[in-house]
Design a protein around this nucleic acid. Structure first.
Lengths: 191, 191
DNA sequence: CGGGTCATCTTGTCAATGACTAGATATGGT
DNA sequence: ACCATATCTAGTCATTGACAAGATGACCCG
């Protein structure tokens, strides 16, 4: 099962599933989550126009796989930073910036099958880390739910605004630096 | 605002531009910002398959018009609530919930022509209200920019999370009520 | 070695779509 | 009454997503 550069000219690709996913991520990065065609992915991977559908069923299947892989990577990132809620918030934004193609699909339910088992498992894993972080943020107290939502919202909102270029000139300079100064206000409130 | 039962069978529609826009908003509400075709809009409006293109140029043109109209309505909503920053935050979320179809297009630059004059004017108008509100939130102080971004992020993020159904069970019950409790934490910090 | 089995990939096809062209029809100004 | 122009229709083409049927070769068992 070597993944390698085997079979440049062979009938069987060797790792077409991976190649199509990579092509999809590239295409998403260039023109958004739906600015490409299955046939374009096939061309990028150098295979026939129907080959991608064999591995993913249909276009939605490709996006489902992207979302599933994205949530898995996302959960990994969050877990590495989960000691401190503020760190998790920074990791949230950093993931969105560093893995834009994944992020842009993950939170767009109309694009993929949200009930896909693999996607659901990964999403729940990420959700568990967020919930745990939130519990550390607001220990006890009636405002726990609100605090949780506020923290999640500020990270998600900043990431979204940055990704779609809505931030006027604020994103100039180091994104992470700006993100930190914003997140601090909510994650490290002098209550 | 029935534009008219005029000309049910006439060659000219009378207000096709409006009819296509309404059809687009309806379609977006049902299946997302790109889950429809120009020809479907034509069918909904009862005109030929090429009629919509005459008024909007192409599919991107329809989305551009939706975004422009959306930003105009958005600016109106914000202006009505601009006295108090917290009220503006609530209006922000309420607009997203009440005018979901508009909102889902407005903050997705890859879908439309962001440099469209009409869209740009409306967007700037909304931006000005937000900036003004933010100034009231954090009068002076070096953290003004961070506070502004945090407030914007929390409203935008909550709206986005609610719209794509990411909030676990928090959205159960009155959305506005939950939104208020979240926004309060950032907009009315007991500093 | 040899044959069978099956996932992988290709070729062929079809309806739907976006975009374009040319033409038909109404509207309003003069 | 005439005509310039905006509005809408009919026709066309390349591209696309989805599907069906067939070709290829990897792997297994003897």
């Amino acid at each position: 099962m070597e993944v390698g550069q085997i079979s440049q000219s062979s009938y069987h690709h060797g790792n077409l599933r991976r190649a199509v996913l990579d092509a999809a991520l590239e295409a998403i990065g260039e023109s958004g989550p739906s600015g490409w065609s299955l046939r374009e992915l096939a061309r990028r991977a150098g295979v026939s126009h129907a080959a991608p559908a064999h591995h993913f069923g249909d276009k939605t299947g490709v996006l489902t796989a992207v979302a599933a892989e994205g949530f898995a990577l996302f959960a990994d990132s969050l877990e590495r930073a989960a000691d401190d809620p503020y760190g998790a918030g920074v990791a949230y934004v950093r993931f969105a910036v560093d893995h834009r193609a994944y992020f842009e699909v993950m939170f767009r339910p109309e694009l993929y099958r949200t009930d896909d088992p693999e996607a659901a498992v990964a999403r729940d894993r990420a959700g568990a880390v967020l919930a745990e972080s939130a519990r550390k943020l607001a220990p006890g107290g009636g405002s726990e739910r609100a605090t949780t939502l506020a923290a999640w919202s500020v990270a998600h909102g900043f990431a979204g605004l940055w990704l779609n270029g809505a931030l006027p000139e604020s994103a100039e300079g180091n994104v992470e630096e700006v993100a930190r100064s914003v997140l601090e206000l909510v994650f490290r409130r002098d209550r």
